[in-house]
Amino acid sequence: MIRSALLIAKKDLYSELKTKQVLATMIIFAGLVILVFSFAFDPANNTTKAVIPGVIWVIIVFSGILGLNRSFISEQRNDTMQGLMIAPMDASSIFLGKFLANFSMMLVVELVSLPFLFLLFDFQMYGGFGYLILVLMIGSFGFISIGTFLAALAANSKSSEMLLPLLLFPVTSPILIGAVQATKIILTNIEKLSSAMAWIQLISAYDVIFFVLCFILIENVLEV
C-alpha cells in the first residue's frame, strides 16, 4: 500500500514539476495575499502583529484549496482515475498518494511564503519557533487530509470548484480555529504556551480521527 501511494505521490509531484500549474498558482496567490495585507496594515504598528496568525492561515487555506481542487480533477482527463482504480492496489493507496502530494506542495508554499511574510511585516520571533512549526504541520496535515478526501468527493460534481470550499470549511473549522488560536499564542504571547498546547492537542485528536475516517471511506467515494 505504501509503495503504491509513494508511486502516485511521485507521479503527481513529477507532473507538477513538468507543468508548474498548481504550485506556481499557489505561490503567486500566497504572495498576493501577503502584499495586500502589507499595504493594509502598517508593519511599524504593534497591533499589526495580531494580524499575522490570521494571514498565515488565510494563505494556507486558500492556496491549499487551489491545489486540492486540481488534485482529482487532473485525473479526469483521459479517465486516468480508472487507470489507478484497475491497478492492483486499494483505494486507500490512491488517497494516501494524493494526500502526500498535496501535503508536500502545501509545505513548499509555507516554506516560501512565510519567511516572506515575516520579512515584509518586520516580524521578530522570540522563541517558540519549534511550536510554530508543529502547529503549521498538524494544522496543514488535518486540513489537507480532509481536503483530499472531499476533493475526491467533489471531483464527480460539475461545479466541484464551488463545492469543495462549501464542504471543506464546515468540516475543517475546528482545525482552523485551533490552529489560528495556537499560532496567535505562540507568536504574540508565548507565556501562555499551555493554552496553545491544549489547542494543539485538540487539532491532533481531530487529525487522527478524520484521517482514519477518510482512509476507510475513500473506497466508497472513488467508485465509478
Binding site: 503504491s4 508511486l7 507521479k11 513529477y14 507532473s15 513538468k18 507543468t19 482527463r77 483521459n78 479517465d79 486516468t80 480508472q82 487507470g83 489507478l84 484497475i86 491497478a87 492492483p88 492496489m89
Partner: peptide, 28 residues
C-alpha cells in the same frame, strides 16, 4: 487483467516511456 476502455488512461504531459514505467511500477 489488462483493461483498455474508450479513453486511453494515459497522462498527457507524460511521454510513452514515463506512462508505461509508472503503470508498470504500479503492477509491480
Amino acid at each position: 487483467q489488462g483493461y483498455l476502455p474508450h479513453s486511453s488512461l494515459l497522462y498527457e504531459h507524460y511521454s510513452p516511456l514515463e506512462n508505461l514505467v509508472f503503470f508498470g511500477n504500479l503492477y509491480g
